[in-house]
Design a protein around this nucleic acid. Structure first.
Lengths: 179, 179
DNA sequence: GTCTATAAGAAGATAGAC
DNA sequence: GTCTATCTTCTTATAGAC
């Protein structure tokens, strides 16, 4: 079969499959079947299976880095407000990619290319905790982040305006406002 | 090597590995290495790899069923209070098992033996939403449940008294008190 | 109850035809 | 750019010795 955008179709199928059944649980065979091509075609467009994963994770990682940089230039309270909205927006834009990051975090974070991602998400967590590194505040942040990422994948339909507001609402409530 | 409790050692190693790197990501080879026995010994104690998983999930499923039955006999407000504490206690007691359930939910829920677990967790979610099936209330519940389950695994150390209180606090805050 | 050896198949990846 | 065929390694599971 001849296509103009096989590469994009592979990425779309892989994102969906990785997010739902995990990286390890998704074989090249399954991705190829979803796209309607052979395993060899997958490996013509991407050097390895890991390469597909890295390609998927790069854009959200780039946007998270940009968000972290913005946060650095704000005081704690303003940073936290932007962090909440920025995190929810990232999750909504990249819901599949972020679901897979949380799904396979243990596996992913052993890869060197994800060390940066880990550092960035820890910086975001501290900002969400209001600048504190207090264990209880960070616990609330981690519950909120993991919960929102897990939930976002289950709502791939539209009506995202409401979903955005609802997620921001949950995030605000979950975070202790100890100011 | 001769042991008195190989079966229990297998279950302990499998729980830890399934929770951290997922069911599909954990091979019998890896479990056997962790236990210090051969793959054949694993399959002497358990018929299949799936049998190990089913054995691990059975106790939390049984306790969740018991909790759901208790909740049925309370009014909405009292049920919600018990549901919050009951859920956090379940997560703390069975943190590895529950982490693996959330980790491999998509995979697991295709198996018929997990249909009951899905029904039970949905019933719990409705109680946590204060008896309502309103989409926004259920969203908060789902964020809270997934977030708490995800976070609990990362805290295998002691100090569980504080962790229990902190998780209950997050849960109460995340749930909308629209009474 | 535990082991080694092995079967049967699926995994990721490569070679080479078209 | 896509395919079929193949390689190697790893998977789950079984057979049979001890």
């Amino acid at each position: 079969m001849v296509r103009s955008n096989t590469r994009e179709e592979i990425l779309a199928a892989a994102a969906r499959l990785f997010a739902t059944i995990g990286y390890k649980g998704t074989s090249l065979q399954v991705i190829a079947a979803a796209v309607g091509c052979s395993k060899a075609t997958l490996l013509y467009h991407f050097a390895t299976k890991d390469d597909i994963l890295a390609t998927l994770v790069a854009p959200p990682a780039r946007d998270l880095a940009a968000l972290a940089e913005k946060l650095d230039r704000l005081d704690a309270a303003a940073a936290r407000e932007l962090a909440i909205e920025g995190f929810v927006d990232l999750v909504l834009i990249y819901r599949q990619e972020i679901s897979l990051i949380f799904h396979d975090m243990t596996y992913l974070f052993h890869a060197p290319s994800f060390a940066e991602l880990k550092v960035l998400s820890e910086r975001l967590a501290i900002v969400l905790a209001g600048g504190s590194t207090d264990a209880q505040a960070l616990l609330g942040v981690n519950v909120m982040m993991a919960g929102i990422a897990a939930v976002a994948l289950d709502r791939p339909e539209h009506g995202d305006v409401d979903l955005r507001g609802a997620l921001i609402g949950v995030a605000r409530r979950a975070l202790v406002t100890n100011a």
